[in-house]
Protein backbone atom coordinates (compact mmCIF):
# COMPACT_ATOMS: atom_id res chain seq x y z
CA UNK A 1 0.00 0.00 0.00
CA UNK A 2 1.52 3.37 -0.94
CA UNK A 3 0.10 5.05 2.16
CA UNK A 4 -2.25 4.35 5.08
CA UNK A 5 -4.78 7.14 4.89
CA UNK A 6 -8.19 7.91 6.30
CA UNK A 7 -9.68 8.30 2.83
CA UNK A 8 -8.97 6.31 -0.35
CA UNK A 9 -6.75 7.58 -3.19
CA UNK A 10 -4.69 9.88 -1.03
CA UNK A 11 -1.75 11.35 -2.98
CA UNK A 12 1.21 13.13 -1.48
CA UNK A 13 2.68 16.24 -3.05
CA UNK A 14 6.12 15.40 -4.42
CA UNK A 15 8.27 18.17 -2.96
CA UNK A 16 11.39 17.70 -5.05
CA UNK A 17 10.09 17.32 -8.59
CA UNK A 18 12.64 18.53 -11.12
CA UNK A 19 10.24 21.33 -12.18
CA UNK A 20 10.70 22.91 -8.75
CA UNK A 21 14.39 23.66 -9.28
CA UNK A 22 14.23 26.45 -11.84
CA UNK A 23 15.65 24.46 -14.74
CA UNK A 24 18.37 22.72 -12.74
CA UNK A 25 18.88 19.09 -11.85
CA UNK A 26 20.05 18.10 -8.39
CA UNK A 27 23.17 15.96 -8.68
CA UNK A 28 25.00 14.44 -5.70
CA UNK A 29 28.74 13.83 -5.69
CA UNK A 30 30.56 11.57 -3.25
CA UNK A 31 34.25 10.70 -2.86
CA UNK A 32 34.41 7.12 -1.56
CA UNK A 33 36.34 6.38 1.63
CA UNK A 34 37.18 10.02 2.32
CA UNK A 35 35.34 10.76 5.55
CA UNK A 36 36.70 14.27 5.92
CA UNK A 37 33.45 15.05 4.07
CA UNK A 38 30.70 13.58 6.21
CA UNK A 39 28.37 12.87 3.29
CA UNK A 40 27.99 13.25 -0.47
CA UNK A 41 27.25 16.83 -1.53
CA UNK A 42 24.31 18.18 -3.51
CA UNK A 43 24.56 20.64 -6.42
CA UNK A 44 21.90 22.25 -8.62
CA UNK A 45 23.22 22.07 -12.20
CA UNK A 46 21.69 22.80 -15.63
CA UNK A 47 21.20 19.53 -17.57
CA UNK A 48 23.27 21.05 -20.37
CA UNK A 49 26.39 21.26 -18.17
CA UNK A 50 29.30 19.48 -19.87
CA UNK A 51 31.06 17.02 -17.57
CA UNK A 52 34.28 18.99 -18.10
CA UNK A 53 32.64 21.83 -16.14
CA UNK A 54 31.93 19.42 -13.31
CA UNK A 55 35.64 18.51 -13.23
CA UNK A 56 36.72 22.13 -13.41
CA UNK A 57 34.24 23.78 -11.05
CA UNK A 58 32.04 21.41 -9.09
CA UNK A 59 34.49 18.82 -7.79
CA UNK A 60 37.15 21.34 -6.67
CA UNK A 61 34.41 23.31 -4.90
CA UNK A 62 33.12 20.15 -3.23
CA UNK A 63 36.35 18.38 -2.33
CA UNK A 64 39.23 20.79 -2.92
CA UNK A 65 39.76 21.30 0.83
CA UNK A 66 41.20 17.78 1.07
CA UNK A 67 45.02 17.64 0.89
CA UNK A 68 44.80 14.63 -1.46
CA UNK A 69 42.45 16.29 -3.92
CA UNK A 70 45.24 17.76 -6.04
CA UNK A 71 46.93 14.32 -6.22
CA UNK A 72 43.97 12.51 -7.72
CA UNK A 73 44.87 10.54 -10.83
CA UNK A 74 41.66 10.88 -12.80
CA UNK A 75 42.79 8.22 -15.26
CA UNK A 76 42.57 5.51 -12.62
CA UNK A 77 39.56 6.91 -10.78
CA UNK A 78 36.58 4.53 -10.76
CA UNK A 79 33.14 6.06 -11.19
CA UNK A 80 29.63 4.96 -10.31
CA UNK A 81 26.47 6.58 -11.62
CA UNK A 82 23.47 5.48 -9.57
CA UNK A 83 25.35 2.33 -8.47
CA UNK A 84 26.39 1.35 -12.04
CA UNK A 85 29.95 1.62 -13.41
CA UNK A 86 30.25 4.82 -15.38
CA UNK A 87 32.80 6.47 -17.64
CA UNK A 88 32.19 10.23 -17.77
CA UNK A 89 32.40 11.81 -21.25
CA UNK A 90 34.06 15.16 -20.68
CA UNK A 91 32.55 17.00 -23.62
CA UNK A 92 29.08 15.54 -23.32
CA UNK A 93 26.38 17.14 -21.23
CA UNK A 94 25.00 15.63 -18.03
CA UNK A 95 21.70 14.93 -19.69
CA UNK A 96 23.18 13.20 -22.73
CA UNK A 97 25.12 10.69 -20.62
CA UNK A 98 22.21 9.57 -18.48
CA UNK A 99 22.67 11.85 -15.49
CA UNK A 100 19.16 12.80 -14.48
CA UNK A 101 17.50 14.54 -11.52
CA UNK A 102 18.76 13.32 -8.13
CA UNK A 103 21.49 11.18 -9.66
CA UNK A 104 24.30 10.10 -7.38
CA UNK A 105 27.82 10.13 -8.82
CA UNK A 106 30.52 8.46 -6.73
CA UNK A 107 34.20 8.17 -7.47
CA UNK A 108 36.89 6.01 -5.91
CA UNK A 109 40.59 6.87 -5.96
CA UNK A 110 42.27 3.51 -5.24
CA UNK A 111 45.80 4.84 -4.69
CA UNK A 112 44.72 7.52 -2.19
CA UNK A 113 43.99 6.15 1.28
CA UNK A 114 43.01 9.41 2.95
CA UNK A 115 44.65 11.42 5.73
CA UNK A 116 46.91 9.17 7.85
CA UNK A 117 45.81 6.31 5.54
CA UNK A 118 42.69 6.11 7.66
CA UNK A 119 40.01 6.73 5.04
CA UNK A 120 39.68 10.31 6.25
Amino acid sequence: MPVYALKPNYKGERMDRVENFGGNLIVYFGWDEHRMFCAAKAFPLPPSTPFAAVMENVLPEAFGQHPEFSQINWDTAEWLLNNEPFKPQMNATLESQGIDHKSLIRFKTPELKGYASAGV
Binding site: Y4, Y10, G12, M15, D16, A42
Partner: peptide, 17 residues
Protein backbone atom coordinates in the same frame (compact mmCIF):
# COMPACT_ATOMS: atom_id res chain seq x y z
CA UNK B 1 4.42 4.39 2.42
CA UNK B 2 6.00 6.33 -0.45
CA UNK B 3 3.06 8.72 -0.79
CA UNK B 4 3.87 9.95 2.70
CA UNK B 5 7.61 10.45 2.36
CA UNK B 6 7.65 12.05 -1.09
CA UNK B 7 6.39 15.02 0.92
CA UNK B 8 9.56 15.33 3.04
CA UNK B 9 10.59 18.97 3.41
CA UNK B 10 14.32 18.44 2.89
CA UNK B 11 16.16 21.61 3.93
CA UNK B 12 18.91 21.28 1.31
CA UNK B 13 16.44 20.92 -1.54
CA UNK B 14 14.30 23.73 -0.16
CA UNK B 15 17.34 26.02 -0.26
CA UNK B 16 17.98 25.06 -3.89
CA UNK B 17 14.33 25.69 -4.75
Amino acid sequence: EPEKYVQSWLPVHQIFQ
